[in-house]
Simulated scan of single mutants.
Amino acid sequence: MAEDRQGDVRGAPLFAALDDEAASALRASMTEVRLSRGDVLFHEGQPGDQLYVVTSGKIKLGRTSSDGRENLLAIQGPGEMFGELSLFDPGPRTATATAVTSTTLIALGHADLQPWLTGRPEVATQLLRALAQRLRRTNDTLADLVFSDVPGRVAKALLDLAKRFGVQSEDGIHVTHDLTQEELAQLVGASRETVNKALADFAQRGWLRHEARAVVILDVERLTRRSR
């Protein structure tokens, strides 16, 4: 890990509304953290009092059950934040944060964030919006686990990854998700075998093409229909 204070914090939607002076002041109170793939930022159950915003790379948030099974709660990319719950409800971390790729984050502690929430209503508004979006995604995930089959959940997960990390190419949307087959299965709450079967079916139908830790979505419309 290394510390730095370079870069504009307004790359994160949470602080996008700040002017030059405010952004410079905020950057001076933040710490940059660099991780290599596989590095753990914090473990589930550890105390924490910092909010993190991803500036480059990807972080996975996961939980482990008492019998050793793992579940991925979310993949966070550039501009997205996590760890904010500990600022408002002090307690142990509810997930383990691990770098999926080489990742850079900026961290802000509770004591440094509080003045921005009370003195800058736009920051507080953005934070509330981010929390509401997180809750909405959680509700959608719970509903999918109850009402959707595995292929439907796989299709929806790929479309979500495409929306956040996809790049349009000549033959489709190139989505570098950087996840192993096991991690992708954990993200949709299913076995690797079942998820691989769904992916193989999608590929056979011509909806997507597999690449190393990536897919190219060739038919967004049909994949969208399957996700519903």
Rank of each mutant, 00 (worst) to 15 (best):
E3K: 00
R5W: 04
G7W: 00
D8C: 13
V9R: 00
F15Y: 05
A16F: 08
L18M: 04
D20W: 03
E21S: 10
L26Q: 01
S29R: 15
V33P: 02
V40T: 15
L41E: 07
H43Q: 15
D49G: 15
V54P: 02
V54G: 02
S56L: 08
K58E: 12
G62H: 14
S65F: 03
G68M: 04
I75C: 12
I75L: 14
Q76A: 12
P78W: 05
E80M: 01
F82E: 06
E84Y: 10
L87R: 04
F88Q: 02
D89N: 09
G91Y: 04
P92I: 01
A97C: 07
A97W: 07
A97G: 06
T98R: 05
T98M: 04
A99I: 05
T104M: 00
A107W: 04
A111Y: 03
P115I: 06
W116N: 05
V123C: 01
T125R: 15
L127P: 05
L142V: 14
L142F: 14
V146K: 11
D149W: 01
R153Y: 03
V154Q: 01
L158A: 11
K163G: 15
V167Y: 11
V167G: 12
D171T: 14
G172K: 13
I173R: 13
H174R: 15
D178T: 03
L179I: 09
L179W: 11
L179K: 13
Q181T: 01
G189Q: 03
T194W: 07
R205H: 13
A212N: 08
E221R: 13
R222Q: 08
R222T: 07
R225S: 15
